[in-house]
Design a protein around this nucleic acid. Structure first.
Lengths: 145, 145
DNA sequence: TTGACAAATAAGAAAAAATATTATTTAGGA
DNA sequence: TCCTAAATAATATTTTTTCTTATTTGTCAA
């Protein structure tokens, strides 16, 4: 996984938008600045409430649409959920998930071996694989054994 | 993965309900009968519309609650979604998923090697692993390259 | 630098999905 | 057969997402 400072990331942000023909609006900058500081998998509503503090006029629709747009161009990921609202992942590096079936939380973990899993030949022929993720389902420490 | 006829499965259904102290209602039987015939990952609403045909008085709430109940006792799984409504999986055997980011479809596949993935020691110490799933993200054949 | 225009936004409405409340019904044991 | 807790139907409500429309704003080209 590559590591970049947030300054570098925000610096690249303008370029990435232009590459994709997207306008660089203050709203987009604000949203991007907030999400790259997060180490959770926030919902659109959670991000909306945070961005609203410095941008009281922003609408939920804008936040939600912007997150979609970011997902489309790979600036964020949409993560799997097992119920509840859609969640976005500011961490686009290769990583895997622990899913606690009690509390519903989804935790990141890194494991090189999983990143390098072989994809069966039959599947490569039928499907263009762009990413892999291993999801381990179980009970987290906080929820007891 | 074990293979069972639907007759066997419906036969066991009554027992499983009793084991968990659940009453065997006609609604539950009807819902269970329908979902085990499915090879997709239906939403509660999809199941509602199907069951409604033979059971016109059933309410959506009953279907939704029943599916939750089934999930709680392991009769069905809740599958990861990346947007849209919650989906249930009548196939509780070990299997993995192909997720097309274009059409959003989630397809099952089986791969013994993935079933037997080693779980890192650090994780076993912090987390009780009950199941694993590999999700391959990409573009399916129908959606082009 | 300015003006034109497509893209983006805010606001509100509406649709879709999930959950809660309550009165009534029913499965299953006594 | 009766009793009781559990389950259901119906309705209301909440949450989440999407759509519509009028307005504003970045960007590009002159």
């Amino acid at each position: 996984m590559k590591q970049e400072s947030h300054e570098e990331k925000t610096g690249e942000f303008v370029d990435i938008c232009h590459e994709h023909g997207l306008k660089v609006t203050p709203q987009r900058v604000a949203i991007y600045r907030e999400i790259i500081n997060m180490d959770t998998h926030p919902t659109a509503d959670a991000i909306y409430r945070i961005v609203k503090k410095e941008y009281p006029n922003i609408s939920f629709d804008t936040v939600n649409r912007t997150l979609q747009t970011f997902a489309d161009i790979g600036l964020v990921d949409v993560v799997e959920v097992f119920g509840g609202a859609k969640r976005f992942d500011p961490n686009v590096d290769d990583h895997h998930h622990l899913h606690c079936i009690r509390c519903g939380h989804m935790l990141d973990f890194y494991h090189r071996t999983y990143d390098e899993l072989d994809v069966p030949k039959e599947i490569q022929e039928e499907f263009t694989v762009l990413g892999k993720r291993v999801v381990l389902k179980g009970i987290c420490k906080a929820c007891g054994t």
